[in-house]
């Protein structure tokens, strides 16, 4: 069972081939116009307004905001935490996928559902869930509130499914013959894994990791209750934006927001190009 609540395997995008497509008829033309107007009103114009607000003060103001010591500390913490979480997820996510596909034991299907829970939970609830066990009244005596470890744990929680769900289908589809051949030629299981299995998983691990990284960079809800929002220590980019908004500093908020937006766009476009290249080769 590889059902996922939010398919992190990435966007199922249209193929680039455009043969067999119809020309726009008058009706579908109107439909396209309506769709584009709504999409612009909802998504494109507001995002353009963010870029506009960030650019309004000129390059100097933009750069000044980002290099301000406190903002810079928040950005650095966000990137470091997200990178660390991504590395951990790349390893553990692959292991989890491996166990889900190759191992057989009672209750495995329950495990498959558990993987999806972090995606399914509202982010604020995810924060509360972690605080109930690792919060101020922790029954195990661990309090993560206002610590960097707390942020790390929250990011680990919300990004859990990404690598698992991208690697899992690839592992299922993997051809047994090659492994069989390697084993019959005397390769140990470790060598077979390193030389045969791992290389074919790398594209999936890369895709899952980059989606997880983008998510970790932009995470907000699950951190609201956990991060104490202390400048220089536990303040991350998204919470810094909120602080700017609450302090009525729209330009500052927009400057940081543009950075986050850039990460999101680079990830999506990068994955699009990457998956097209892999698809062409395969």
């Amino acid at each position: 069972m590889t059902d996922t609540l939010v398919a992190p395997a990435g966007p199922a995008r249209t193929t680039s081939r455009s043969s067999g497509l119809l020309r726009l008829t008058p009706t579908s033309g109107v439909g396209l116009e309506v769709a584009l107007v709504w999409f612009s009103v909802l998504v494109l114009l507001p995002l353009a307004a963010v870029v506009g607000a960030a650019a309004a003060g000129g390059w100097g103001a933009f750069w000044g905001t980002l290099t301000d010591a406190q903002t810079f500390a928040a950005l650095r913490l966000t990137v470091v935490e997200a990178a660390a979480v991504t590395v951990v997820n790349a390893v553990i996510g692959t292991v989890v996928a491996w166990v889900l596909v190759r191992d057989q034991f009672v209750g495995k299907r329950v495990l498959d559902v558990v993987i999806d829970i972090p995606f399914a939970l509202p982010t604020i609830v995810a924060g509360l869930v972690l605080l109930s066990l690792y919060g101020p009244e922790s029954p195990v005596g661990i309090d993560i509130v206002n610590t960097r470890q707390g942020i790390f744990l929250a990011l680990l929680f919300v990004t859990l499914p990404f690598v698992v769900r991208t690697v899992q289908p690839v592992l299922i589809e993997l051809d047994a013959d090659v492994e069989e051949a390697a084993a019959s030629l005397g390769a140990s299981r470790a060598t077979t894994f390193r030389r045969i299995i791992l290389p074919s998983l790398v594209p999936a691990i890369t895709a899952g990791s980059s989606l997880g990284f983008a998510r970790a960079i932009s995470e907000f809800g699950s951190l609201v209750l956990i991060s104490g929002n202390t400048p220089y220590r536990t303040e991350v980019a998204s919470l810094k934006i909120l602080k700017f908004i609450e302090g009525d500093n729209q330009a500052g908020a927009a400057a940081v927001a543009v950075l986050l937006l850039l990460v999101a766009i680079v990830t999506i476009v990068g994955l699009d190009l990457f998956s097209r290249r892999v698809a062409r080769r395969g």
């Binding site: 966007p11 995008r13 497509l21 726009l24 995002l47 963010v50 982010t123 907000f220 909120l242 937006l261």
Partner: peptide, 28 residues
């Protein structure tokens, strides 16, 4: 089903809302 200029760009653009930080969405 249809061919129009910018089709591929649009197919990439409609994916952006999922990856944008919720705070950025609100701010926008």
């Amino acid at each position: 089903r249809y061919r129009f200029p910018g089709r591929r760009v649009l197919s990439v653009l409609v994916d952006i809302p999922m990856s944008v930080s919720p705070v950025v969405v609100g701010l926008a």
